[in-house]
Design a protein around this nucleic acid. Structure first.
Lengths: 117, 117
DNA sequence: ATATTATTTGAACATTTATTCAAATGTTCA
DNA sequence: TGAACATTTGAATAAATGTTCAAATAATAT
């Protein structure tokens, strides 16, 4: 059985489908957008980002604020770093994190407004 | 060993910590925000949402546009319905979906702008 | 050097998630 | 009624994710 035989695609309104298909972005765009959203789709990371929107903070202070282990906070910060949502600077033994981009603040504000109606 | 003994929380800048702690939202707020973001943190769902931002579409047309099985699209639509991001109306044998809230359009636009710089 | 503190890392685990398949609804039309 | 179509659902699986623990770095102070 060839691949074509198992294709189940049936189109009801071909005109609409073609029109929308033309407007779709390229595959990687959705992938990248999804990854950005993934970074903000965790409770702990949101707390971290929200705290950082108020103050530059070191890992152990962040840990006290969000009430989670230092290890966990560090792991989550790595994810946020990888996605370029936070930046950091070292000062003595401490590492101070802050938001890398105002975009996050806006995003969080939008979600907050939506959630609180 | 009591719970206090294993507590590892050490605070470096108590003033900052207290100030930020006071500004933190309540636990459920982050949870709800995370859930909203989770809905938009998947490539397939983003494609669906983007397509729906252009046109009201039935499941099989959506399936053709995003090039995924009808079953998968239906599963993802359920998630989007549960999160109140899409609404639907029945017409004959078909079910037509559309965006429930302009908020999604804004959110996607923001992420798109961020991704494309 | 050793000890102490702050952070990062890696492995392990449990949980969640996306996807597929097959079967079950629900709707229209002969 | 039954056949055909559009969609939903549930179970099963594989992959991704959040969290914990213990060990490894890295920086400072004794």
């Amino acid at each position: 059985m060839s691949k074509e035989d198992v294709c189940q695609i049936k189109i009801i309104n071909k005109k609409k489908v073609d029109k929308v298909k033309k407007q779709m972005k390229k595959e990687t765009t959705y992938q990248e957008m999804a990854e950005t959203f993934k970074a903000t789709s965790d409770k702990t990371r949101l707390k971290i980002l929200y705290a950082l929107s108020k103050e530059e903070l070191c890992v152990c202070d962040l840990s006290a604020i969000v009430d989670m282990s230092i290890s966990l906070v560090s792991h989550q910060l790595r994810i946020l770093r990888d996605k370029k949502l936070v930046k950091y600077r070292k000062e003595g033994k401490s590492v101070y994190y802050s938001l890398d981009d105002d975009y996050v603040v806006q995003l969080i504000k939008m979600a907050y407004d939506h959630v609180t109606e």
